[in-house]
Design a protein around this nucleic acid. Structure first.
Lengths: 140, 140
DNA sequence: GTAACTGCAAAATATTTGCATCCTT
DNA sequence: AAGGATGCAAATATTTTGCAGTTAC
């Protein structure tokens, strides 16, 4: 695992540091999205708040993670697939936000349907966010 | 116009005040979404920043406007249709964010397609945000 | 007249920047 | 050794809260 993460960082021309490995690990260990605050909590506030900001920013611009738009003011981040490159993110799956547990999940298996835009509009990215109750919460 | 706005405010059991009428007017006059900052600018900072926050909050909870999720940390607000009621917003159209002019538009004529969620998930709202270049910017 | 709304001040949060020090390569 | 990354301090920006004065009904 460590190896895998290091490889990804190196591929993105980022030096391999403790904070980057640990934060990247968080993303790999959980199938979903993380907000800035989650990251601070789950690393046990091991890293400076500023470092977290800068790490996320670095991952974003290198195309390692992407943002997921949400209705509440909290930006969430999730891992990009291999098809994403630096400065060019594209992801074609649906995101699910649970109103109960608050978790955001990537529904990789659900492809966003094509839509026909009005004349004159050009699209380069489409996001689809479904909110409701997730599988885990429905059971409980 | 004034009349129409007043009626809407009264229907929502909000008193008709200068700030509410002016801010609501902004939404009616422009077919699109506004961020907090836009509102401050376009009212010429006539109202206190706090009043703008509280006015938007009031409109939100009364179901007069709704938020549109965006990738950058800026929440945008747009008018709800008549089908929205207090505490129960539903809108089924696509939103378009222009990467050039930054404007967010409601594409009322484009209905969000139905999708099939994995077993165990229940949805109560779906958002679809397309970003790219809008008609006006493409021409320019 | 009363309840609701506003504006000011201030507190609480969140984000960004500069810089000296430390770590990776 | 050199460049990049971190942590601290501090500057900004954003959002929330309390309260006294004002306005709508």
């Amino acid at each position: 695992m460590e190896r895998e993460l290091e490889k990804l960082l190196k591929k993105s021309r980022l030096s391999v540091t403790d904070s980057r490995v640990k934060i990247l690990e968080l993303f790999f260990n959980q199938q979903g999205a993380l907000a800035h605050g989650d990251i601070e909590k789950r690393t046990g506030e091991k890293f400076d708040r500023v470092t977290v900001y800068r790490t996320l920013q670095a991952f974003l611009t290198k195309g390692i993670i992407h943002t997921i738009p949400t209705n509440d003011n909290s930006i969430r981040y999730a891992l990009c697939k291999d098809t994403c490159e630096e400065g060019h993110h594209h992801d074609n799956h649906v995101h699910f936000v649970c109103n109960d547990c608050g978790n955001t999940t990537c529904l990789e298996e659900i492809i966003i349907p094509e839509i026909k835009l009005p004349k004159g509009y050009a699209s380069n990215q489409v996001e689809m966010i479904v909110s409701g109750i997730c599988r885990a919460c429905k059971k409980g």
